[in-house]
């Protein structure tokens, strides 16, 4: 059988398929539907220092081949997370990566310091696509702020750091480089695209927050292009995210340069999709007589 294992920082994944933050809850939600230990890695819903109520309703809205969401990082805060969610996550048997977000550098630092002490946490994903320290734009829209947040977290932990990038920028390569220079072990891209939808009869926005993040198959080509550009220009692993619905999509991202991929919106539609993608990748490698998954990573054929 083909070798599916990949490495992200210090984390050895038995396969490159990860469940994306915010789409997989704290894994327990899926326990009856998915054999969780077979997933490459599980990334939790983003945790903040203090509990957050999240955004007003409605929070989701379907669009053509996609969906908008504006959940607003609803979560119970780190204390509750460590007490209520972590014991279950520790027992799953797949690497657990905790997604964190802060209102400022200090909050990222404090969160990382607390997670650093917990053995069963394999890594930390920095969700810097959150309301920024200066309250305008996102951390991930500014190279300097990205650098500073990653640097602060790097100081406090040796755990694998994944920096999650926003596509809502003019030069995503520049942001990725900032994360790399600050010591991030990997970058994951892309988070959702800013979007909106309007009910023309009431003239009201379809989201309580007016705007939200667009995800799903409709964003895949743009995400793929960004993964391609970033992976060509940095030396740390890129984790591809954006509308991956099946194994073919996942393989596309890996050929474009992603070392691993994250499945997001698809989890909502098909709870067992991560495992299905793992099997699909296996089938692809077998069909093409490829011995190890690494052989396809970044192996884009651009010859005539």
């Amino acid at each position: 059988m083909a070798e599916l294992g990949v490495k992200i920082g210090k984390i050895k994944l038995k396969n490159p398929v990860m469940a994306a933050s915010g789409t997989f809850g704290y894994a327990k939600e899926f326990e009856k539907l998915v054999n969780l230990k077979h997933i490459g890695a599980i990334i939790t819903k983003t945790i903040t220092l203090n509990p957050r109520q999240g955004n007003p309703m409605p929070r989701i809205c379907e669009t053509s081949a996609g969906m908008l969401n504006a959940i607003g990082l609803q979560n119970e805060g780190i204390d509750n997370f460590l007490k209520e969610k972590m014991p279950y996550l520790s027992k799953i048997g797949a690497p657990i990566i905790v997604s964190i977000s802060g209102n400022n550098i200090d909050e990222f630092f404090i969160l990382a310091r607390r997670l650093d002490k917990i053995k069963s946490i394999s890594g930390i994903e920095l969700n810097i696509s959150c309301p920024n320290i200066k309250c305008e734009g996102l951390v991930a829209q500014d190279t300097k702020e990205t650098y500073e947040v990653v640097k602060a977290v790097r100081k406090i932990t040796d755990k694998t750091i994944i920096t999650k990038l926003s596509p809502n920028v003019t030069d995503i390569v520049g942001i990725a480089k900032a994360a790399e220079n600050a010591g991030s072990d990997a970058v994951s891209l892309v988070n959702t695209f800013f979007g909106m939808a309007i009910d023309i009869d009431t003239r009201k926005p379809k989201l309580g927050n007016i705007t939200g993040g667009l995800s799903g198959p409709c964003i895949k080509p743009i995400a793929l292009r960004m993964v391609y550009e970033v992976s060509k220009n940095i030396n740390i692993p890129v984790i591809g995210i954006g509308g991956i619905m099946n194994a073919n999509d996942a393989i596309e991202f890996m050929i474009a340069g992603a070392v691993a991929i994250q499945v997001g919106t698809a989890n909502f539609i098909e709870p067992g999709v991560c495992i299905k993608i793992v099997k699909g990748i296996e089938g692809y490698l077998k069909k093409h007589k490829i011995e190890k998954i690494e052989d396809i990573i970044g192996n884009l054929n651009i010859k005539n």
Partner: peptide, 12 residues
């Protein structure tokens, strides 16, 4: 309106 139906997306 729901996306996942199982408590993961927090949309509803």
């Amino acid at each position: 309106k729901m996306a996942c139906g199982i408590g993961a997306c927090l949309g509803c």
